[in-house]
Amino acid sequence: MPTRTTGETSGSSGVALDIDRRDLAWYVDKAVAGLVFVAGISAIIFIIGIFVFITREGIGFLTSAFDFKEFFGSPAWRPTSERKATYGALALIAGTASVTGLAMIVSVPFSLGAAIFIGEFATGKTREALKILVELLAAIPSVVWGFIGLSIMNPLIIETFDVPIGLNILNSGIILGLMAAPIMTTIAEDALKAVPDSYREAAEALGATRWQVTRRVVIPAAKNGLVAAVLLGVGRGFGETMAVLMASGHSVNMPTSVFDSVRALTATIAAELGETAMGSDHYRALFTLGILLFVVTFVINLTADLVVRGIRKR
């Protein structure tokens, strides 16, 4: 790089000033900026890429064999029927919805309770220890949860409720609820932590007890974040595959009670995709389920995000 001595242009001070000199730090900065830019937009590229891929594989079904009424209105998922294959996803949707719904009933009170305890009541070492434990809980692989559902919950449910099979909505709902709890707890606790401490101080100075502060000040102020936490928990439950596959019984069934076995959308894809001929109607129908899952989780996450942003704007 040409370096110019600028003695004659630097004015009367007479100090030499290499005004256009680029040192190593400049190049490092540019290189790092480029790298993190690529890393940053890669998330967007991957999401678009996944969506394009799923849509491309599923679109053939959507344009040819897809029957809107059958897909959303019929519980008959018989893709391998020799006489007439039918692709009714209603039972699968109901399966996913019932398991996720029960999971939320189990998970929301636990998670919000845990978040409030960690964020507002626990202090010092208790608080730190609990936070670490909750994060550890989030790291348990889903197949382990599924294993617990199969080998512990299954006999327990059969014995306790005197039902023929323990792999059902109750089992998978509880397992999924426990799986969703750590992430909901963590996000809910972040929402509580974002409430300025001056609010708590003001309320406490007025004589409010810890619970009064929490109920009347902190929870209303953190409302949006808490809603987002629940939504993200729902999204987590919706997309979970392995544990639900193992604990739900995996039988196509319109559920009428929590002791019915059901099959989830995700589990259907996981179990059947390997056995289909690439490009067949069955293969494409599974990708259509994928599109449905993608759209639903996308909407849930987007809503959660918008809800959180709502809190910041105010």
Binding site: S198, Y199, A202, A203, A205, V217, P220
Partner: peptide, 8 residues
């Protein structure tokens, strides 16, 4: 308090 801290 030093900074006005009305509740939200």
């Amino acid at each position: 308090f030093q900074r006005p801290n009305p509740l939200p």
